[in-house]
């Protein structure tokens, strides 16, 4: 009897937690955003660490180009923003936020590559809702999540973690932040790291 009551209480608490969103939804996406509910914060094991060379990759972008990491070598600091999925709540505002801070990226001689395991048509439709993006959006759809997996960022459900990776001009990983998938990483975290890396171009 007591166990049953405890069960009811636990269900009730769980229900209340789930019903409180951790984000604010923008009107521009209208009713199109699918809410997957609260997910396990992190669901993969990193395969790389800071100080190591980033694995090179080539992926198709929404712009129609094929983007290779090595093309930025000796030219730009690269920020990889892995997001779990198109048309979900937190992801749908993370990139629009980055879209108004191109100046900050320029200030640190950095560029941004957005990466998702969605296919190009989905990414095209979804990012089209955000307005014109200044950065490339890459599709890690096939082989499914291969790039995410090479970093150890592919979750058991087949989507990637919400992660930020900063790669310096020598191709070395200088910062990895695997965020709680349910929350957006604050912009200042990224800006502070860019500041540190551009002040110290070579790792210690």
């Amino acid at each position: 009897m007591r166990a049953r009551l405890n069960h009811i209480t636990a269900t009730l608490i769980c229900m209340l937690i789930i019903s409180t969103p951790l984000w604010a939804t923008a009107k521009s996406f209208n009713e199109s955003i699918y809410n997957p509910g609260l997910l396990k914060p992190i669901d993969s094991l990193l395969k790389l660490k800071t100080g190591e060379m980033a694995p090179d990759f080539s992926l198709p972008a929404v712009s129609g180009k094929t983007i290779s990491l090595k093309d930025y070598r000796n030219k730009k600091i690269v920020v990889l923003s892995f997001i779990p999925a198109a048309w979900t709540p937190v992801c749908s505002d993370q990139w629009p936020g980055y879209n108004i801070v191109e100046e900050i990226f320029n200030e640190y001689d950095a560029t941004l590559l957005g990466i998702s395991v969605d296919n190009i048509p989905t990414l095209f439709s979804w990012t089209g809702q955000m307005g014109r993006l200044w950065f490339e959006v890459l599709s890690d759809f096939w082989p499914h999540g291969e790039v995410a997996d090479s970093f150890g960022l592919l979750r058991s459900s087949g989507v990637s973690e919400r992660a930020l990776i900063i790669i310096d001009k020598n191709g070395i990983i200088r910062f990895i932040k695997v965020n709680d998938i349910n929350q957006r990483p604050p912009l200042e975290t990224l800006v502070n790291e860019l500041q540190k890396i551009s002040a110290q171009p070579k790792p210690q």
Partner: peptide, 23 residues
Amino acid sequence: NRALCIAFAILSLTVSCAHQPAA
């Protein structure tokens, strides 16, 4: 109690699957 449990479970599922941030 069993009926209550099922009702709560269905309700929490409905809330968590809502397309909008659940009220």
